[in-house]
Design a protein around this nucleic acid. Structure first.
Lengths: 152, 152
DNA sequence: ACTGAAAATGTCGAACC
DNA sequence: GGTTCGACATTTTCAGT
């Protein structure tokens, strides 16, 4: 699907705040409510907009501790990779997992309550996984910017 | 604010899909529409729910290339840190920026179209920033899991 | 892309368990 | 804390143009 300038603007608006009425969005676009409605429906249908979600304040739910965990597998066979990825998906503390280039194979983003909880996560959940070679943890001191949106 | 089990369930539901009607949510909670409505409003008012956003399919808008960029500052004075953080906020390619412990000072998550665009970002936008000591880039081969939600 | 109109929801007060 | 009922305002949704 090809996005024109108006579509891109809609995507920008909805990435910032999706809880606006069609009327409010139409106003920002200088478009009628129906035209806006149809464009949004199309973006949803085509899968450009994957879904709508609520973003939670980590501090208010005791998940202020963010860590990046770099992981090296013991081997790089197809079986090791696929097993590891399946298991990592099950860990609720892991909000993101990327297969990456470089010294390590995976980078995880982990949200837990505090350092104690992170230790428990490492000892009881992560290192019990088979196939893990080594890990390296980086702790965040402060989130300077933490956005879910992408610029178009 | 103290969250009970029902609140946590609401947060879970809205983190997965916020585009449901109160009625649909109430059904999942075995609660009345009004009770559901009031709990959600409270979560919003207290700031537990920060906002609602649309999530975009990166592939469909040509931002399939994800990189983690580790950055070391030249010095660690207050002035260097504050200037760097202000400048990094302005870069639209940077969706996340964390001040971290370890060998490097910052980790950025960068979304661009491809490697060529990443090179341009590095050369024209990142390395022109003053105060940067060194950088180390890690490229993602595959996103195994990429969620915005946190488990409660 | 716009107008107009029906159907569905959001919103909230009130009375009550 | 929870429920139900009711009612108005607002929105969504869609047909016709």
């Amino acid at each position: 699907m090809q996005l024109d300038q108006i579509d891109k603007k809609i995507v920008g608006i909805l990435q910032t705040n999706s809880n606006q009425t069609n009327k409010q969005i139409a106003l920002q676009l200088n478009l009628s409510v129906t035209a806006t409605y149809e464009r949004i429906k199309k973006l949803e249908k085509e899968g450009v907009i994957k879904k709508y979600v609520a973003l939670i304040d980590h501090d208010k739910v005791n998940r202020s501790f963010t860590a990046f965990c770099h992981i090296k597998l013991a081997q790089h066979t197809k079986e090791y990779i696929s097993t590891f990825e399946k298991e990592i998906m099950q860990l609720e503390e892991v909000s993101e997992c990327f297969h990456v280039s470089g010294d390590y194979d995976y980078i995880l983003k982990v949200y837990v309550e505090d350092m104690k909880a992170y230790r428990e996560f490492m000892v009881n959940k992560l290192t019990v996984l088979r196939h893990i070679g080594s890990t390296h943890s980086i702790f965040t001191i402060n989130a300077v910017k933490n956005s879910s949106s992408i610029a178009l």
